[in-house]
Design a protein around this nucleic acid. Structure first.
Lengths: 208, 208
DNA sequence: GTCTATAGTGCGATAGAC
DNA sequence: GTCTATCGCACTATAGAC
């Protein structure tokens, strides 16, 4: 039952077409592995799923899984590089009259639009899987921390002093993750960008 | 060479006395494993050190290592529970007229005093080892994130609304880690608490 | 303390695309 | 023929089960 629901959410029309069309040498092994992994993690849990399970459902061997993903966790983090690139591009091209914190808020909104563009339900399922596994949380936190470091460097390239850049970048990540958490909470109707703005406003109130 | 330096920093007089005094059944296996692990990680790197290596230097079996520490990384995180308890106690006992952010700053200073009380050089060596290994960074980030969640709950127990508590707590963690990084940077002479205050001041300037 | 499952690596063989 | 993705197998280390 929950399996069916998850499948509907995770398989886009494009995915299904690909699978129908696949010949002996099936294309997009990477995409199939990503779908298989998220399904299995949601179905029976991350720790109860072996890489062999994922590979089998994806129609490849275990060895091939590790050719595509450096480890078992990484299969849930495809797209994080694109997210970071979007953030850095947004920082680099921000208007000159914005404050560092406003630059970060704008960049986080840009990142949120990439996430919100995914198939409906996907971010929420993924968030639930990550929230249920400390091991996955660790990886998520590392990605966010690295995003913060990269953003701080981008701010410095615009002339923002090191300490200000670091605090602004990290605060940007804080309002991003706070906004994300709010956005995926069942019952909330605000869009992702509004949730980020709400977190920023809250930060301003707290420091006033 | 670097081995010698590290040994001097890691072994306190108490540690050495213990080892000299140890009989057939050597006490403080936990402490010896912690010292052995940090030394080995600093000497030859985290990934180049096996649990068997650590156990051998600590004079116990591999099995005993895992009896004391749930995994290889955890050996570097002894004391994080005490740190969290100190933070929560500080939040709970803070004066009623402080703002949530001021409560967090005070609590982070309390945490910093625990870290600054360690043997000279230890926090810096440990920080270098962690910085060199993404795997250890992940664990550190998880501990900090959990500290933030617990701090947010403590703030809510004082009547701070959920969103404000979350943003304040996470911002507190940000100024803590920013201050820590500054404090362990070679050449800096300010004490840990001052570094935290500097980060807080910076946050206030950024949001003004 | 022993045994086993799983994650992850190294490398040579192979199969298909071009 | 080259190039690349996959496979198959041997191997180590972590970690948990018994």
């Amino acid at each position: 039952m929950s399996v069916t629901v998850i499948t509907i959410h995770l398989m886009t029309v494009t995915d299904i077409t690909k699978i129908v069309d696949m010949g002996r040498w099936e294309p997009d092994a990477r995409g199939r592995l990503r779908v298989a992994a998220l399904e299995l993690f949601a179905e029976r849990g991350y720790e109860q799923t072996t890489v062999a399970d994922i590979a089998e459902r994806g129609g490849v061997t275990e060895r091939t899984f590790f050719r595509h993903f450096s480890d078992k966790r990484e299969v849930l983090f495809e797209g994080s590089e694109a997210l970071q690139e979007a953030v850095l591009a947004s920082i680099a091209s921000a208007p000159a009259d914005l404050t560092p914190l406003e630059i970060m808020a704008t960049a986080m909104e840009a990142a949120s639009s990439l996430i919100a563009a995914q198939p409906v339900g996907y971010p929420r399922i993924r968030a639930a899987v990550v929230a249920a596994n400390p091991s996955l949380q660790e990886r998520e936190l590392l990605k966010l921390a690295n995003l913060g470091v990269a953003a701080a460097e981008a701010l410095q390239r615009r002339g923002v002093p090191a300490l200000a850049a670091q605090v602004a970048a990290q605060s940007g990540v804080t309002i991003f993750s706070t906004g994300f958490e709010r956005w995926v909470t069942p019952g909330h109707t605000d869009d992702f960008a509004s949730c980020i703005r709400a977190a920023l406003d809250q930060l301003r109130v707290l420091t006033a």
